[in-house]
Structures are given as structure tokens and as C-alpha cells.
Design a binder for these strands. Structure first.
Lengths: 331, 331
DNA sequence: CTAGCTTAGGTAAACGTTTACCTAACGAGT
DNA sequence: ACTCGTTAGGTAAACGTTTACCTAAGCTAG
């Protein structure tokens, strides 16, 4: 139905190979007028090369798969958007997969992406430890973001955030403001993701000569729903004057729970988030948070991946993003 | 490198055609033991068919393209997520494109999707009128969501929202609460999208015997940045006690501007949004809004598209979603 | 005994590209 | 007159599938 390279070739009176060479700018040995004729036919017939056929023969699709736990989490929305933009700027496009933090879904997305011939994959934060055997078998260049990952030879880069420092800053910020009983809410307690943050939180207390009350800790997931229920649980169990939430979504859920109980933020209880999602400053009471430059890390991930695709001997990158405090009105 | 159908065939001692038949369940004429041998080899060698080769020959990729103006707008995040989920449930996957409301980007995404052989496209709300010639030429089954679109024969369905009623409800809600001077903030003033909403807004006033002051109208874009600047402009120009924002993102921007001037919501100025994005109830002061069942409309879009793909004579769907009011704490 | 059906599977073309290698003509240098 | 290079372009295989059509054997019915 659509125009193919053969249509162009026939109408130009040359072979398909010649057209292909011109289209791919490998036309040092093609005459000027043939070249022009081909280009004008391409315009006239609105010819666009069939990427599928091209991928089949070149074994490269110029597509990058991006796997995130849940795009509804505004943090991942921003990340995905940045990855997509970075990829397009370099002639790639992306295909997005939500794993819902489910190992089976993650594995099925991985094989899906492989069967669709993606050139590389960005595997973003998740409580999961990815299936090393599968990754090993697939042998697709990979960038890991904020997650535990085995040291595969198809690992192009790791982009991690210094969660220890982030959590340390977050707790210190509140301790300096005079808080003594600070709740800590984070994701899956088994994930290194959360363990490291907890370590930073505890270090801040240690350095300030403060104890850490285990009753003030609630870990489960990074979404707003957990923020809501964790805060309710904490309020029922104990008392505190501030909350360290390890994601902005958690902080949003927490604030709703505090309001429910008639507590106002930050007067009755201060709340600090983590991520600085673009919504944070738009809340009616703008949320204090830990900035982690989400878009920049997306750009880094895609950049590292494409550099690796261009040249697999390119030195692997290991980036550790340094978070900073942003004080708004909730603390 | 990866296992192909020929590897399976060789090891099973049959031809590739036989393997293909078994894999595709067209194996009525294949012996029981051959069948079993093939399946066990498939498992053993971790064979996954190469989707690219398959697409090339079958001319179907089981991929659906989704074009939105900007995934950072939480409304589209939810929509995209719903489309993706609906598609996966029916064995399709999606590929996402952000047009940034730019006609050139939209056109380039359209040809990109075409060259990658997507089976269908969901074209979501945008201030743009799509390039009818391009669409006509591409001949890819299409679902249009909340946008003006020519009546192409590849149009599988239209999913629209009854914006006139939505805006009417929104304004009436505020009028009933006693407001007399209500600002109206919406997207691109040229787009039918906005004109229709404005009509609903005006009808609510007419039916209540109230005049509409043109000074209270500001139209430009649907994002939070415009909400912020439009509200500043309105506050500088005139006075009002309530705002009809035609998207929740606008409402979020508006609330920030009101706070800036020391006005509290809803005491000094009520604000109502539109869309009921999932963040609306999480704002420290939960946002009143117009519900439009975003996920449901995503499901509808993908469902209509796939039905059309399955059977192009399937009756075209024209859905008009009916919005409702959700009162929270900003009104 | 043979026409015809069923069962089990093979053959080869096709999808739309890319690319390694070939050819043919022409001119220049020796 | 011959090699050699260059220029301009063609040939055909290859990528990994699917599928229309073929074959060959075995069986059954008349």
C-alpha cells in the first residue's frame, strides 16, 4: 500500500540499492542527477522508509525501552519525560513500560522489549532486584537508575542518588529546626533503597546526639496511599512533631492524614518530602523537599545508554546524584 | 545471536514452517509428539519470536501509538496509563509521544509511528487541528479524544467530553454558592475545546440572569504556568470571588497566585478545577473539580481502536463523556 | 483397484530493507 | 596495448518470520 523503496527505484529508473545508498548518504559513488531525481521522488511520493524492515536487517531499531514501577508517580512521569526528550534529541525514541513493582510484569516487559528489538533499556528505581539470569541472557545494554543491580557486562551505566546524604539532610533540616521526635516514612523495608535512607536518617540523629525511636518508623511503599495509611498508623501509635517522607508522594499522603486529624502543617507537624516533583511547589501549601534533579538524571541515563550503543567500549558511567534541601512552607 | 525459529526447527528435526504452525496454534495437522518436542525446545532454549520479522510479514505489530500534548500534565499521565493498561489487557502495547501542542512535532510523531508500523493511533486532546492530509495518507486507524477532527474513514471512534455541560456545571456550582463575579480561565482561545467551555460558562450566567464581564475571561493554555500568570493578570485587572478553571492544572497555578497575594482559598476566592486528576484530593486543601473519568475514557479509546482493528466494519463509536461536580474544600 | 480423503509435514516466496561484492565504461599512465 | 583507478550503479543474499500450496503415505469406500 504505502510507497516502498522499489517504487522510488522503478520511477527513478535505478535499482533499489542505489536508492538505499542515497537515502543513507552512502552516495559517494552516485551521480549528481540520479541523487537529485531520487530525492525529488522521495518528496513527491511522501516516501518514508519502513523502520521494521530496516530494523530487521540492521539489527538496530533506534528505540530505547524505559521500565518504571508506575508512571502515575509524578517522579517517574518527570523521569520518563526527560528520557523521552533526551532520546529524541539523539534520534532515538522510547517505549514505556509500567512494572507495578511486580517481578513477573518486569520480566515480561523485558522479554517484550527484547523481542521488539530495542537497542537498550533504562531500568528505573523499583523495590525489586531484577532477574539477573534474564538480563544476562537478553544481553541488551542497560542503564540502571537507583536500584540494586548485578554487575553485568551489558550494564552501560548506573545512575544513583546519594540517598544516605538525602535522608541525612532531610532529618538534619528538621533537627536544626528544633524537632526532637521525627517520624520516618519510606518504601519497601527490604529494599536497599530504603535501608540506605534509614541509615542517613539515623546518622543525623546520632550526630545530633538524639535517639531514634523505632515506633516512629513506617516503611512500605513510595506512593501516596501508603503515605496516608502510614501516617494514620503513626498518629495512632505515638506522637511526633515532624515527618521525614522519603518521597513527595508519601508526603502528600501524609499531609492529607494530618489534616484529617485536625493537625495543620507545619504548625502542628512539619513535613518534608523527597524528589522535588514539579507539583511540590503547586500544592496550596508548598512542600519542603529534597531536590534530586529528576530530569537531569533522565538525560544522563539516556546519554549514557546511547554512548554505550555507539561504542560499547565507552567507559561505563557511575553517577551518584547529590541531593539538596528545598525549604518551602511545610517546614 | 538469539535463538531463532530455525534453531528450534533444526533441533526438532522439522522445518521452520512446522515450528511456526505450532507456535501460532495452527497445528491441526501436526503430530502430537512433534508438537510436544517443539514446545519443550522452546522452553529449553528460551525462544521468543522476533516481533520485527513477524511484523514485517504479517503487516501488523500489535502496537498502538498514543499522542498527547504533554505527559507532565497529570490529566494525560492518567490517560496514558489507562490506555497502556487497556492495550496490554488485549495483547497490544503502546508507544507514547509528546507533541507539546506543536503541529510539526505532531506530524513528525505521526510519520514516525507510521514508519514503525503501529496498528492504530490514539490522538488525545490538543489545541491543534490535526493535519488531515497526512492522516488521510497514512490511513492508520485512529481514535480521537476531545479534539476537532475531520471525518476520515480510518477514524475508529471519537471519545469526547461534554465540555459545554462541564463548564455549565462548574459555573452553576459557584453561582448557586452565591458568587456573582466569577473568573474563567481556559486553554487556547482559538480551539473549539475552549470555545465550547466558554459557551457553557455563559449559559450558566444567562440562566441565572447574570451578566458575563469579558474582563473576567483569560484563555491561553491548560498548564499550571498559565494558571499562575492568568490569575495574576486577572487580579491586577479586576475583582472576583471565584474562579472557574478549565483544568485542574490551571486551578493549581491559580491557587498559587491567589496565595501570593495573600488571598485564602476558598474564603477569599473559591476555585474549581476540571478533570479530577488523582492529585486533586491530595492537595493540602483538596480541590473542588469537575470529574471526567479519565481512566475510563482511556479504556474506551483503546477498546474502540482494537475493535476496529479486529473488524474495520465494526460500527464507529462516538462517545460523549458526561462530567459531574466534585465538591471538596476549595469551594 | 483406484479415486479421493486425511494426516503430517515440507517448499519456497514474500515482507522492505541494507550491503558486500560485482561489472562496465572510461581515462590516464607506462 | 596493457594495466590500474575511478566513477556509476547493479546483483543478490540476508534478516526471521508466515503462509499458500505441494507431496507422500496411509486409509476407506465403491
Amino acid at each position: 500500500m504505502a510507497t516502498t523503496i522499489k517504487d522510488i527505484a522503478r520511477q527513478a529508473g535505478v535499482s533499489a540499492a542505489t536508492v538505499s545508498k542515497v537515502l543513507n548518504r552512502k552516495d559517494h559513488s552516485i551521480g549528481e542527477k540520479t541523487r537529485e531525481k531520487i530525492w525529488s521522488l522521495v518528496k513527491e511520493l511522501n516516501y518514508t522508509p519502513n523502520s521494521i524492515a530496516r530494523s530487521l536487517i540492521t539489527r538496530s531499531s533506534r528505540v530505547i525501552g524505559v521500565i518504571v514501577p508506575d508512571i502515575l508517580n509524578a517522579y517517574f512521569t518527570e523521569l520518563v519525560r526527560a528520557c523521552d526528550q533526551a532520546a529524541r534529541e539523539r534520534g532515538y525514541s522510547t517505549i514505556l513500560c509500567n512494572s507495578d513493582s511486580d517481578p513477573e510484569k518486569e520480566a515480561s516487559h523485558l522479554t517484550f522489549l527484547a523481542s521488539h528489538g530495542v537497542d537498550g533499556i533504562v531500568l528505573a528505581a523499583s523495590d525489586l532486584i531484577p532477574d539477573a539470569h534474564l538480563l544476562e541472557r537478553l544481553r541488551i545494554p542497560l542503564v540502571s537508575m537507583d536500584r540494586e543491580i548485578p554487575d553485568l557486562d551489558c550494564l552501560a551505566a548506573r545512575i544513583d542518588t546519594d540517598y544516605e546524604t538525602g535522608a541525612f539532610l532531610s532529618a538534619s533540616h528538621l533537627i536544626r529546626a528544633g524537632h526532637r521526635r521525627i517520624a520516618f516514612v519510606s518504601g519497601n523495608p527490604q529494599a536497599s533503597n530504603t535501608k540506605i535512607r534509614r541509615a542517613g536518617f539515623e546518622r543525623a540523629h546520632r550526630e545530633a546526639g538524639l535517639p531514634v525511636d523505632p515506633d516512629l518508623i513506617e516503611c512500605g511503599a513510595f506512593n501516596h496511599r501508603f503515605g496516608l495509611v502510614a501516617t494514620r498508623t503513626l498518629l495512632d501509635r505515638t506522637s511526633f512533631t515532624a515527618m521525614c517522607c522519603m518521597s513527595d508522594m508519601l508526603a502528600m499522603g501524609a499531609t492529607v492524614a494530618l489534616r484529617e486529624r485536625g493537625l495543620s502543617v507545619p504548625e502542628d507537624c512539619a513535613v518534608i518530602g523527597f524528589d522535588n516533583i514539579y507539583i511540590a511547589p503547586l500544592l496550596v501549601r508548598p512542600l519542603s523537599t529534597i531536590e534530586r534533579r529528576i530530569s537531569e538524571s533522565g538525560y544522563l541515563a539516556i546519554g549514557a545508554l546511547i554512548d554505550f550503543l555507539d561504542d560499547p567500549t565507552h567507559p561505563r558511567r557511575m553517577v551518584l546524584m547529590e541531593p539538596t534541601v528545598i525549604q518551602r512552607e511545610t517546614t
